[in-house]
Amino acid sequence: MGQFRCQRIAYLKAMRIGTARIDLQGQPAGEVTEAAAIIARDELVRNRMIIFRNAATHYF
């Protein structure tokens, strides 16, 4: 099975264990697993680190 990763902040924040997943056609596609929620959390942390690092290089 292929894997699609979305990096939109709102999508990543919505990835909570047990919440419903919806496919691209708007149909139910199961629930967010613990593993998927952890990956989303880690991606958010990585994105924040990049933003802060980039901001620091422009202001200091």
Rank of each mutant, 00 (worst) to 15 (best):
G26I: 06
A55T: 05
G18T: 11
A36W: 01
G18K: 07
A29V: 02
I39D: 11
L24G: 15
E34D: 10
R41A: 02
V32S: 03
H58E: 11
F60M: 05
Y59N: 05
I50P: 00
E34L: 14
E43G: 00
Q27N: 15
V32I: 15
F4T: 15
D23C: 07
M1K: 07
F60C: 08
Y59G: 01
I38H: 04
Q7Y: 13
A56S: 12
A37Q: 03
F52D: 08
N47E: 10
A20Y: 00
Q25H: 12
R16G: 03
T19E: 14
A14P: 01
R16S: 05
K13P: 00
R53M: 07
D23K: 04
T19I: 04
M1W: 02
I9F: 07
T19P: 00
R8M: 12
R48G: 12
A20N: 08
A56Q: 13
F60L: 13
I39S: 10
A40N: 06
R53N: 12
N54C: 03
A56R: 14
I39W: 11
G18Y: 03
A10W: 02
R41P: 00
L24W: 09
I39H: 08
A36S: 13
Q27Y: 06
A29T: 03
R8D: 14
N54T: 13
R5T: 13
G26Q: 07
Q27A: 12
I17G: 00
M15D: 01
G30Y: 05
M15W: 01
G26K: 04
A10M: 07
L12A: 03
F4K: 14
R16Y: 01
Y11P: 00
F4A: 14
A14S: 15
A20V: 06
H58M: 10
G30I: 03
I38D: 07
L24A: 14
A10Y: 03
R48K: 15
D23S: 07
A10C: 06
I17Q: 09
R21A: 02
Y11M: 08
Q27G: 01
I22D: 01
M49W: 08
R41G: 00
T33H: 05
V32A: 06
N54A: 12
N47M: 15
L24R: 14
R48V: 07
R8Q: 13
I38S: 08
T19S: 11
G2A: 09
R53I: 02
A37T: 05
I38K: 09
R8I: 07
D23T: 07
E31V: 14
F60Y: 09
G18S: 09
I50K: 11
I39K: 13
V32D: 04
R21Y: 00
C6I: 13
A37R: 02
L12E: 00
A29Y: 05
A37V: 05
F60D: 14
F52H: 05
C6E: 13
K13W: 04
M1L: 09
R16M: 05
F60G: 15
E34S: 12
E43D: 07
R41E: 02
C6S: 14
M1T: 06
K13S: 02
Q7R: 11
A40T: 02
H58Y: 08
